[in-house]
Amino acid sequence: MPSFPFTRLAAVPYAPLLVTQARRLRRDTPRLPDAALPWTGSRPGPDPLRILVLGDSTAAGVGAETQADALPGWIAHEVAERWGRGSTWRAIGANGATARDVRERFLTDAAAVPFDLALLTIGANDALGLRSRSAFTRDVRRIVLALRAAAPEAAVLVSLMPRFDRFALLPEPLRATLARHAASLDTGARLAVEGLGGVVAIPTPPPYVDGFFASDEFHPSALGYRLWARFVFDSAPGLRLDRPAG
């Protein structure tokens, strides 16, 4: 479930209304559990690709029953479909995590085990918390640089902001306010990782289809994670994973 710590709303003309809307959403939005353990798994096939999914509630698989039905499992599925390779995967993250949380709490563990492909999914909670663009941008760059240093031959895919303007559960003007701030953070983070070797910033997602969201209307469902994984690779046509790294 999203938390809504609107710490910067004093500068927003609609601050009282936005705070009221945020509190109501926090009260009324159902809190879905993380995907069931284990958060590691494998898919059979030759030359297994080592996959790391790192980030917030979407790395934790909220909205899906297991990680096999969330990003790790569907990323492995796409790797098998596109390149004919098996895979091992693991997920690290937490519901509600910001980029700072990932950098401070999870990055050391993430970088400690070898990987060939990392998907960093981060940003929604930074937008919800109205973190500054400079702070978010700095954290994303530090995370990506640390992943690159840990695995120089690996590909690092960075999936940033959802489209808050398309979230039906968000009332106005809360929806528009979050969408504007998220767009600013998204732009800053893309500029921060632009030009880094082996790094691809995934574009903002296309329109969400029926069934994309779980019952809380905020996190992806198993179908949503499947479509997301497909979109990730469709958005990185130059990515080559048909042979072992190095």
Rank of each mutant, 00 (worst) to 15 (best):
L191Q: 10
L107I: 11
R180S: 12
A222R: 05
V12W: 02
P44C: 03
R148Q: 04
V209K: 01
P206H: 05
A91C: 05
H77T: 14
T40F: 12
T187F: 14
G55M: 11
F231E: 00
V53D: 01
F167K: 00
R23W: 13
T40D: 11
A150D: 15
A22W: 08
A201F: 01
A149N: 09
F4V: 01
A94D: 10
A64C: 06
G129W: 01
L241P: 03
T108C: 10
A59F: 08
P38Q: 04
R148M: 09
G238Q: 07
D216G: 04
A179D: 11
G45E: 07
A176Q: 09
A15P: 06
R90S: 12
D28W: 08
T98V: 09
A70I: 04
G198W: 03
F6K: 03
A76R: 02
F4M: 10
A111N: 01
A60T: 04
L130S: 07
R133Q: 14
A64P: 06
R243H: 13
Q21C: 00
F164H: 00
F231T: 01
R50E: 12
V144G: 07
R105D: 10
H219M: 05
V12S: 08
V62S: 04
A176H: 13
P13E: 14
D126Y: 00
P44R: 00
A110D: 14
A149Q: 08
G211M: 10
A80N: 10
R50A: 15
P5N: 02
P16E: 12
V113H: 06
S134M: 15
P162Y: 09
R141M: 06
F136H: 13
V62D: 08
S159G: 10
L241M: 15
G238N: 04
E78K: 15
A189G: 05
F233Q: 03
R103H: 14
D165P: 08
D28R: 15
R243Y: 03
Y14Q: 09
R85A: 02
A99R: 02
A68T: 13
A68S: 14
W83S: 14
T58Y: 12
A97M: 00
A118T: 01
D47K: 11
L157E: 04
S57L: 01
P38L: 12
A10W: 04
T66D: 06
G129K: 00
A155R: 09
S159P: 05
E217M: 07
R43Y: 02
P152E: 13
S3L: 14
A94V: 05
T58C: 04
G84S: 11
L191W: 01
G45S: 11
